[in-house]
């Protein structure tokens, strides 16, 4: 898969400003962990939790779906069971990258609510949402090149399975609605939800 040029991230700049007083932030990484992400976050002094939710979402893993009558139902609780045991309100930041673009709408409130419960007050949820005009790119991967620079694979083949999440939807999903959105030139928005 070809790689896109690493891109400075205004959202990550704000995230790290927000976490600056925390010497050993607790991070939850929701993608397939990369060595670069490991190195960057561990050097920053983070304790890192890893739960790759993106790969099964991208592969639309059958184990997380069932049928009720003629309707396919996403098993959100089974999906979330992949997250390791983490004390509530103990996480400083969650990186879920493009996960929200890969899940059915009905799963998003449960997912965001779970993330919110793990965040400590002042904790930050970082995600990347596609713009509505971006039809393909569901296979893209992201990682930390540095604390404030995002590396990515330039996936452009696989169509997105669901409509784009709007800014307003994101504000409704995140309790208290404290959401900041940053435009990028890649057809994606970077979003921070601050607890």
């Amino acid at each position: 898969m070809p790689f896109a040029a690493p891109a400075p991230s205004r959202a990550l700049q704000l995230l790290w400003q927000h976490l600056a007083p925390i010497r050993h932030p607790h991070f939850l990484e929701c993608g397939p962990v990369s060595q670069s992400t490991l190195d960057v976050l561990l050097l920053r002094g983070a304790r890192l939790y890893v739960a790759d939710l993106i790969t099964p979402a991208r592969q639309n893993t059958a184990a997380f779906w069932t049928r009720r009558g003629k309707t396919a139902v996403f098993l959100a609780d089974d999906f979330l069971a992949q997250i390791p045991a983490i004390p509530p309100e103990s996480i400083s930041a969650i990186c879920c990258w493009g996960l929200l673009d890969l899940l059915p709408r009905e799963a998003l409130p449960v997912l965001v609510e779970r993330f919110y419960s793990l965040l400590q007050p002042g904790g930050v949820l970082f995600c990347i949402l596609r713009e509505p005009y971006l039809a393909a790119g569901a296979e893209a991967r992201w990682w930390f090149e540095t604390l404030t620079v995002v590396g990515s694979s330039a996936g452009k083949q696989k169509p997105f399975p669901y409509p784009a999440v709007t800014n307003r939807e994101m504000e409704r999903l995140f309790p208290d609605g404290n959401v900041k959105t940053f435009l990028t030139r890649s057809g994606r928005r970077e979003v921070l939800g601050i607890k």
């Binding site: 205004r10 700049q13 790290w16 010497r23 050097l43 800014n167 900041k180 959105t181 940053f182 435009l183």
Partner: peptide, 19 residues
């Protein structure tokens, strides 16, 4: 060893362009 952590307080301030 505190010097091993990157100094994130030195990051430039943002002029947020929120939408």
């Amino acid at each position: 060893k505190p010097e091993e952590s990157q100094d994130v307080t030195a990051l430039p301030r943002l002029e947020d362009r929120e939408v």
